[in-house]
Amino acid sequence: MDLNIIWYILVGVLFTGYAVLDGFDLGVGALHLFVKKDEHRRLMLNSIGPVWDGNEVWLVTGGGALFAAFPEAYATVFSGFYLAFMMLLVCLIFRAVAIEFRSKEPWGWWRKIWDVAFSFSSILSSFLIGVAMGNLVRGIPLGTDREYQGTFLNLLNPYSIFFGCTTVLLFAMHGAIYVSMKTDGDLQNLVRGWIPRLIGVFLAFYFIFNLYTIVDVEWVLSAVRAKPWVFAIVTINVLIVLNIPREISKGREFYAFLSSCVGMCLMMMTFGLTYFPYMVRSNPVLENSLTIYNAASSQKTLGIMLVIAIIGVPIVLAYTASIYWIFRGKTTLTKHSY
């Protein structure tokens, strides 16, 4: 295993961490408007209150790691998806601001505006992340200079839009499970009632999504033929998602949430394993693709970065885990709450 492969895995781990962690707080945002009572909305917000900020850091660090390890991929994707990423940035800003300011004033109209801003920016962020992933799967037109040659509208193809919708549903399901874990009483009952339906809709989308991928994206079929064990991962994934309602009905929300996290990790793994060794697939001219070799930094930098990761990541994991531990249990409202 060479350094390039290690960094492919590490960048993958960072983005998976982002999907699993920010996934639930984006999902909480997507569900926010479906909860009507102000107290319940505040509980939802405060369930993610202490952690959403740290969750977003996974995106920042993932972006930084991509820049450091695969600068060509970073430059191509970020400049190629220019308007989409600018919209994502504005959504992330609005989300942060909405969380911060919503409960600062008691006025109804004030809270309503921020509730809408929080919810829509969460949904749109999830959707844009999905659209970006969808385009990476399909492949984007790259020139010999490794620059994106399409336009913003090329990114909004039906497949990627479907990918985006599936992502929104996935995060919403994940968020609902998180809320049911972090709350009790009325709110928990309300959200718990949604979970089986959300899972049902998500699985339907997930099924169509897989069919759509095989039909629409030519390379996937041959890749899966070469790596048939990918099917095993997908099967385990479906089983794990089906396990969620079982755990919920037994009142074991934590295990339900854990299943959901594992399910998302497996989805990212499926993506990473089938996509390997590409960083950005070029479509239609495959030769112009960026791989983990032609997009990478020098071996020396990859080595230095590995040292940084080996020192840093265990410390990060240790205190992230302790912080989740300190804030475990049901969310309650205090005067410091949002």
């Binding site: 850091v57 920042v60 660090t61 972006g63 930084g64 790691a65 820049f67 450091a68 390890a69 600068p71 970073y74 930094s297 930098t301 230095i304 970065m305 940084i308 990761a309 840093g312 990541v313 990060v316």
Partner: peptide, 9 residues
Amino acid sequence: GSALAAEGI
């Protein structure tokens, strides 16, 4: 990039 990634971690 490595400085930025170090900043993140």
